[in-house]
Computed example of a mutant assay.
Amino acid sequence: MSSAERFQKVLITGGAGFIGSNYVHYALTHHPTWEIVVIDKLTYAGNLDNLKDVSDRITFIEGDIANPEDVEKAVNGVDAILNFAAESHVDRSLRDPLPFIRTNIEGTLLLLEAARKHQIKRFLHVSTDEVYGDLVGSDRHSLETDPLSPRSPYAASKAGAEHLVFSYGISYGLDVVITRGSNTYGPYQYPEKIIPLFVTNALESKSLPIYGKGEAVRDYLYVEDHCSGIDTVLHAGESGNAYNIGARVQINGIEVATTVLGLLDRPESLMQYVSDRPGHDYRYSVDPSAAETLGWERKWDFKRGIAQTVAWYQQNADWWQAVKDKKVFQEHYKEWYAR
């Protein structure tokens, strides 16, 4: 069955954020017959500039998924919901967890209620590998059948949302699928996350703040691969299941810093070690075999993906400088890295 036959009008929540906006671009390329509705609250991490080049091809609603009226307006007439909307930064959740509970749990609940009321064909929830907790001290990879063991308020809010999603599948027969993506990077990523922070700081010849000893390992996934994985699960995933999407790589903070500095021909003296994050998870790694069985495959290795990402930030200085000039970014940066 082609995508055009199954879905005609799709709601993408959080579509002005990093992964959401990249998926909007992906969907417009791969599903040109779709009518796409985007709802985004335009918090500090939501940015209409991310959709500037496609604004005439989508319907945009500035709204909050934790507001019933906004949700009702957004879901009208859609036959699939892809929930990207989330507060997503661990550091911010440690400082103030309340927005994470409101958006990630209450917002997901309101979307599920709307999906049930409007008999949505499929509800895809975008989650994270952080729900599995820390794999430090082992060489294993998280499987979809593993128990969830979140260790930060952010990860706990995402795990709570997952339980709600699956409960609506079981209790109400809603067609639900979940993706658990690993650490994603690429164009349009807000520069509080490690890769865009390191790239933009290096471009400004500022120090690259590395937590602790820089030993925390992540499975870095290029955003286009993440979007294709989400799209594969939307169309081919089995209802009631979760699917890991990961790149099968193990890269620590020092490697990220040295790679970025090498690509930009900046000195390694810019690397600066700062106080570690409280309760820092030192290793995430997922086994994406189930998604691969559906037909998904990673196409970007880290070397090519990071080079593409660095090039994008070099070419889009106006975009990231406008973001970093804002008070909300500067206050967070000062609190976390001027230590």
Rank of each mutant, 00 (worst) to 15 (best):
M1A: 05
R6V: 15
V10P: 03
V10F: 09
A16V: 05
F18L: 08
S21M: 09
V24R: 09
L28D: 13
H31Q: 11
V38K: 11
L42T: 04
G46Y: 12
N47S: 12
D56L: 08
R57E: 09
F60A: 00
G63R: 06
G63T: 06
N67A: 14
N67D: 14
E69L: 12
N76Q: 15
V78M: 12
V78N: 10
F84V: 03
V90F: 11
V90H: 08
D91S: 08
R92G: 01
S93T: 10
S93H: 05
L94W: 09
L98C: 00
P99T: 10
P99Q: 05
P99R: 10
I101R: 01
T108L: 09
T108M: 12
R116G: 07
H118D: 07
I120Y: 06
T128N: 09
V131K: 01
Y132E: 00
D134K: 09
L135N: 07
G137A: 08
S142V: 00
L143G: 07
D146M: 04
S149V: 05
S149C: 02
P150D: 10
K158Q: 00
E162A: 06
L164C: 13
L164Y: 15
I170C: 05
Y172L: 09
G173E: 11
V176I: 14
T179S: 08
S182G: 06
N183S: 10
N183P: 00
Q189T: 10
Q189E: 14
P191N: 09
E192R: 13
I194M: 06
N201T: 07
E204K: 08
L208A: 03
I210S: 01
I210T: 06
K213P: 00
R218D: 01
D219S: 12
Y222G: 01
H226S: 00
C227E: 08
C227Q: 08
G229D: 14
V233S: 07
H235V: 01
E238D: 13
S239D: 02
G240R: 10
Y243S: 02
A247W: 03
I251M: 04
I251V: 13
N252V: 03
V256K: 03
T259C: 11
T259D: 11
V260S: 12
Q272R: 15
R277H: 10
R277C: 02
R283H: 07
Y284H: 12
S289A: 15
A291P: 13
A291N: 12
T293R: 12
G295Y: 12
K299F: 03
F302L: 07
K303H: 11
I306A: 03
A307E: 15
A307N: 00
Q308T: 08
Q308N: 12
T309I: 04
A311C: 03
W312T: 04
Q315N: 13
Q315I: 01
W319D: 00
W320M: 07
Q321C: 07
Q321W: 03
V323A: 08
K324C: 13
V328H: 06
E335C: 01
Y337E: 05
